[in-house]
Amino acid sequence: METNHNHNLLREAIARRATDTLSPRFTATTMQQIYKVAERRERRVEMWGYIAIVSMLILVTAGGVCGLYFMGKLPSAEEITTFFTNIKKGVAQYFTESAYYYYMALLFAILLVFDHKMRRKWGQRNSDLETDTPS
């Protein structure tokens, strides 16, 4: 039969087995791990969202193709080739006609970047001079 004395003795002996306390950095380091876990979980959820969207798109497209096939309205291979060739031609023509505008935009972007870099360099130099000047 177990007595209170035995119970207390066991309790005392068990208590002696753990005397250390956690390091003061425990909460901070564990929280860092927790944030990483939460981030990983968020990314996982996001990825499943993308997978769901892509799957739906594939399903809808496949459904559309099947529908067209059974209705006998599926375009022939020749028609499809012509369709894509026309698109290619159209895109090429568009770029040829607009080449001048693209050239101007590119030049503008290069000048903008150059201006930004020079301003930064100039600003840095001025602030260095101000700190060097004795008051």
């Binding site: 306390t21 956690l22 909460t27």
Partner: peptide, 26 residues
């Protein structure tokens, strides 16, 4: 998520003590 720190502060040492008592390696 930052609220989880409350549980770490409240139960950290209790869980640590339990684990220490179960395993022989501190």
């Amino acid at each position: 998520i930052e609220l989880y720190g409350y549980f770490l502060d409240t139960y950290g040492n209790r869980v640590y003590a339990l684990v220490q008592r179960i395993i022989n390696n501190r």
